[in-house]
Nucleic acid binder design. Structure first.
Length: 401
DNA sequence: AAAGAAGCCAACCGCCTTTAG
DNA sequence: TCTAAAGGCGGTTGGCTTCTT
């Protein structure tokens, strides 16, 4: 495919826009709106193609654009979002009002990548360079052993993956699961906000829980201690994923960018194959189930139309349907900081992004809306909150998990 | 001061997806 | 349902500016 078809119809200008062209385009769109971009240049009296006009408007002429250098907070946010979304600049830009995808892309390529490398962080994987160089970052897709459920360990295991938001189905990571009454959620390389190397959910919930806590550091979280806690994070899945009414392991890997385990210590009889096949949308296995439902479009419902996407991971298939439905919901959170848990705000503890010299803006705050899962204690909920636009993603582990 | 290197960024290219007929 | 046009996105390029030697 060559240049856009409209560009062949006549000799069109290329290159930098002149002030006169800017004025024509701005004047036209201000008065009439852009409508069909392909007709804009003709109507505005420009020797440009529609795509060029659109780009100029979006990247330069739009009145809501923020001018000037990126703040430290914006940079931190871009880095955090990139860790989850990868090079999906438009989605990253959607979180930064007044900034364009092109602008962010340029910033990343010219500046942020370098900064991360200077801090010994691999900009592609967002992991320490030493770890990447040591070959610990081998994509699981190349390791057939990861395709097997871990019957022996009885654990949900999302092994490390690069922070690649969407992998081809052939590269999606397998999920291993186990269940027990003593659940431990291992957010591998969790943040330093926890005490030592282990913490309870209440220890990690709070407004200052940033993405780095999911990506960097190590923490064991004993979920048996308090079933009323929840985790929230961004679900970097696509609308098509949800439209398929399934949550793939790739998506969960994206949610847990590095390593998540739900480990059973005291109930080795429980089979993990229920979760092994969760991409098949299994809902009722002998000893456990995982259910993923979606009736909405995640990305396309950013602005308040999300209603009933559900994600359920239940060990016990006897969980009442109503409760299941209440357990897992997508909801929108516009302009909402990352949320981790339902701990009162005054209990929130601070932490600091490893990326930043200053405390980042993207902090977790109390989420009082994370309440549905109280219906089925002991359980925990993994909810996602996007800092600005992305929505809540909830995963509830069933009552006897 | 000059030349080359590096940085920066606007714009283009090409592909994929969505929409309209 | 099919097809072409349009929209949208991410990668890349090229030119201007700044930095370094």
């Amino acid at each position: 495919m060559g240049r856009h078809s409209c560009c062949y119809k006549q000799k069109l200008r290329k290159g930098l826009w002149s002030p006169e062209e800017d004025e024509k385009l701005l004047d036209y769109i201000t008065r009439h709106g852009h409508g069909c971009w392909s007709s804009v240049p003709k109507l505005a009296g420009l020797q440009r193609c529609g795509k060029s006009c659109r780009l100029r408007w979006i990247n330069y002429l739009r009145p809501d654009l923020k001018r000037g250098a990126f703040s430290q907070q914006e940079e931190n946010m871009i880095i955090e979002l990139h860790a989850v979304l990868g090079n999906r600049w438009s989605q990253i830009a959607a979180q930064l009002p007044g900034r364009t995808d092109n602008e962010i892309k340029n910033l990343w390529n010219s500046c942020l990548k370098k900064k991360l490398r200077q801090r010994s962080i691999d900009p592609n994987t967002h992991k320490p360079l030493s770890e990447v160089e040591n070959g610990k970052d081998i994509p699981p897709s190349t390791d057939k052993s990861n395709q097997k459920a871990s019957l022996g360990s009885h654990e949900v295991s999302l092994v490390d993956q690069p922070a690649k938001a969407l992998l081809p189905s052939s590269e999606r990571y397998p999920l291993e699961v186990s269940t027990s009454s003593t659940q431990k959620l291992f957010l591998d390389r969790f943040g330093a906000t926890c005490h030592g190397n282990s913490c309870k959910p209440s220890d990690v919930v709070g407004p200052y829980f940033s993405f780095q806590h999911l990506n960097y550091g190590t923490t064991n979280m004993d979920l048996s201690a308090n079933s009323n806690d929840s985790l929230c994070f961004i679900p970097p899945c696509t609308s098509s994923d949800l439209n398929n009414s399934t949550i793939t392991s790739s998506m969960l890997h994206s949610i847990f960018p590095t390593h998540v385990k739900i480990q059973s210590n005291d109930n080795p009889s429980i089979s993990s194959d229920a979760v092994q096949n969760w991409e098949s949308n299994n809902t009722n296995k002998s000893n456990g189930s995982m259910q993923f439902q979606s009736s909405t479009n995640f990305l396309d419902n950013t602005w308040g139309m999300v209603e009933s996407t559900k994600v359920n991971i239940n060990k016990d298939a006897q969980v009442p349907l109503q409760a299941e439905q209440e357990d897992l919901k997508w909801s929108e959170y516009l302009n909402t900081p990352f949320i981790l848990g339902n701990t009162p705000q005054n209990q929130i503890q601070t932490s600091q992004s490893i990326y930043s010299e200053v405390k980042p803006d993207t902090e977790f705050i109390t989420d009082e809306s994370c309440t549905s899962w109280h219906h089925q204690p002991p359980a925990f909920q993994l909810s996602d909150i996007n800092s600005n636009v992305l929505q809540r993603f909830s995963v509830t582990f069933g009552q006897t998990l």
